[in-house]
Amino acid sequence: MSNRICKMFGISLPIIQAPIHTLTNGKMIASIAEAGALGILGINSGFKFETDASTGASTTTSEEIGDEERFSILDTMTERNLMNEQIDVAFENTFRPFAVEIASTEASPNDDPTAKSLVMLMRKRRITITLFESWGQPISKEWISLLHSNGIKIMEKVKTIEQAQDAQKNGVDVLIYIGKNLANFVKRFGKKTPILAGKNVTTAFTIKSAFANGADGIFISTPFIVCKEAPTANNIKEAIIKSCSSNLTTFTFPNEIVYSLPGTLPDKLHDLTITKIEPSKIFRQAHHFQGLINGMVKGDLTNGYTMLDENIDEINKIAPAEEIIENIAKNIPEKSR
């Protein structure tokens, strides 16, 4: 393997699955790993609403779970147990590498016991790759020190030159670029740090363009949302493959524009955006991350929304993760594998 991403992570293809809140589980991640890509167990992986006699950590009968402003929807111990269950499932189905997402906006690990507990879990289970999600804030030196001291490689999303400079200076191992002008970004930062293209990479053209512009790999979200193994609600999967980009509705959250399937709540959020309501207030009207769970996991677009890539035109089939990865790989130049 000559590719820097493949060498660093021990994978066969420079394809990284981008997790979305609650929409991953151990079986899905193992399927991605077995196909040669890198799967990431996202926060609240494996979460279920229905009671299940086989486990108590990953189930609830409540309609509203935890504090909707927190990234984790469960308390620290339950979140850790939930992730551990899904790691067990992944290890039952693959010996290949996979990653775990750590989410925190706190500068000190001691101020975020849930995120810190997941780092300790990764150490115990010998998982050596993380996606650190800080929602536009730079990952602190304290977090980087904790992760590196436990043998964990760090990926971080960056949108601006300033964010990339901070991440590179602090020692982030892989930059996921979600801004504009990938070629210039790679020219500036790619010599020192591997770069993943992470902005709207969904079509054959965008995959080929990412590597033509110098990216070491691709960070892909929506195609995996509709994979057979994904815990996305079936009606949402069906709606995605039958929709096209022009059908999506948009609204603005802090730090990002959201592309969603239309529905009662998404249409309301779109109208609020048009009337120049502050993004933070729109996020509140969306019921924060509870709205995402309502939309993506429950399939309820009356009280929830979806979070998709801007271009979904070539996503037209619910298929196993292996098949999705095979189709993606066809557009990756041989020299980049």
Rank of each mutant, 00 (worst) to 15 (best):
L269F: 04
T193N: 09
K237F: 07
G217W: 04
P138R: 00
F71K: 00
M83N: 07
Q17S: 06
C244I: 14
M8D: 01
N84C: 11
G171K: 04
D313M: 08
A319M: 12
T76F: 10
A197E: 03
L292C: 08
N184V: 02
V297T: 14
A18N: 03
V172C: 01
P320Y: 03
F219I: 03
S209Y: 11
I218C: 09
T61N: 12
K317N: 14
C227H: 11
A197R: 05
A233N: 09
T202L: 03
V174Q: 01
N303S: 11
G263Q: 01
G214Y: 10
K298A: 11
Y177T: 10
A18L: 03
S62N: 10
N327H: 12
V258H: 11
F132N: 01
P113Q: 12
W135P: 03
R188C: 12
R70S: 15
L23T: 14
A215C: 10
T60Y: 04
A239S: 13
G46E: 10
S62K: 09
I139V: 12
P14N: 02
A90L: 11
S140Q: 00
I102K: 00
K276N: 15
S72Q: 07
I29C: 14
Y177P: 09
A329H: 13
N311E: 12
A329L: 02
N331P: 05
D271V: 07
E34F: 08
I20M: 15
N247C: 05
N294W: 08
L308S: 08
A233Y: 03
Y305F: 13
L147P: 00
I218R: 02
P97R: 00
A329V: 05
G214V: 10
P231D: 02
N44Q: 11
W135H: 15
L74V: 15
E133L: 04
P254W: 04
Q17R: 01
K187W: 04
I218G: 06
S245E: 03
Y177H: 09
S45A: 15
K153F: 05
